[in-house]
Every structure is written in C-alpha cells, then in structure tokens.
C-alpha cells in the first residue's frame, strides 16, 4: 500500500492505495464519486475524463499514486450552489445528450478546452473533443453546446 494525499474537488483526501489502483477507481470506489464513468478502459473513449491540475486527463490511464499531491476535479464539482455550470446549462439547452453516459467526460473535456481556448472555432471544438466518443448524438449538438457556452461569455 502507498499513502497518497491529494485534493479532490477542493477537499483534502488521504488514503492508502495499492499502487496499481487506477485514478478512476480511486474516485469511484474509494471516494464514492461515481459521476466519472468508466467506458472503454483503454484511454480511447474519454468517459473517464477529469481534470488534473486544471487540465483534462483520462483517469483510466493514470494511477492514483500519480495524482498524489495534485489537484483533481471531477464533474461533481462543476455545479455550484444548485446552479448548473455554464457548460452543463449549455448541454441542457442544446439537447447535447441522449443516454448521458459520455456526458461527464464531454463536459470535463470541453471545460479544459475552453480554458485553453476561450473562443474556439467549430473546427477547434471538434478537434478539442477528439478524445471523447458519443454513440448517440452524432456530436452535432455537443459541438453546438460548447460553442454556445463559449459565446455566453460565462466563466468556465
């Protein structure tokens, strides 16, 4: 077991983990943060996307020990005081989800994209979400939602 200490959604967390514990399972099973989904488990689909020190990463391809001492943000931390995050609101407004399985990862990937590129073109949004697969929507409304959130000027 290895002792780790990290910040998850603003809260300090300490735990003893087996070194082979993947970050996504640490979040889901040790901390009960089940908003982050496991999809393909092969760093392809992006359903497990969270932020590590503010940048999007695939938590199925990181060990929890690699996040030791760092800051992790999951989908649970985006809504504040009962108000949806501007990206979540834009996803709702634009009907950017059907089954919803890819949505947490999509939103986290989009938030990281908008932090790097606050006013992306449509092509930049499509490229920025290349690491996230959606099997329902055909991406059209997801791209629309991200552009909508960017245009709303709300801080992401």
């Amino acid at each position: 077991m290895t002792r780790i200490s990290l910040t998850v959604n603003g809260q300090r967390r300490e735990a003893d983990v087996e070194p082979r514990t993947l970050l996504v399972y640490f979040l889901r099973e040790h901390l009960g943060l089940t908003g982050t989904n496991v999809g393909c488990d092969t760093s392809t689909c992006g359903a497990c996307t969270v932020h590590l020190d503010g940048e999007s990463v695939k938590s199925c391809t990181l060990l929890a020990v690699q996040a030791d001492g760092r800051e992790v943000t999951t989908i649970e931390a985006l809504a504040r005081d009962g108000e949806l995050h501007p990206l979540q609101e834009a996803f709702r407004r634009n009907h950017a989800l059907q089954c919803g399985y890819c949505t947490p990862g999509m939103v986290m990937a989009a938030a990281s994209l908008l932090r790097e590129r606050p006013n992306p073109t449509e092509e930049e949004v499509r490229e920025g979400l290349e690491g996230n697969l959606c099997r329902c929507t055909g991406y059209q409304n997801i791209v629309k939602a991200v552009l909508d959130a960017a245009a709303s000027g709300a801080r992401v």
Binding site: G46, S56, V57, K58, L62, A109, G128, G131
Partner: peptide, 9 residues
C-alpha cells in the same frame, strides 16, 4: 499524438 487528454500527460 492521441488526443488532448493524452497530450496533457
């Protein structure tokens, strides 16, 4: 290489 998440790590 890969995608943005992969390039971040």
């Amino acid at each position: 290489v890969g995608d943005p998440q992969v390039r971040h790590v």
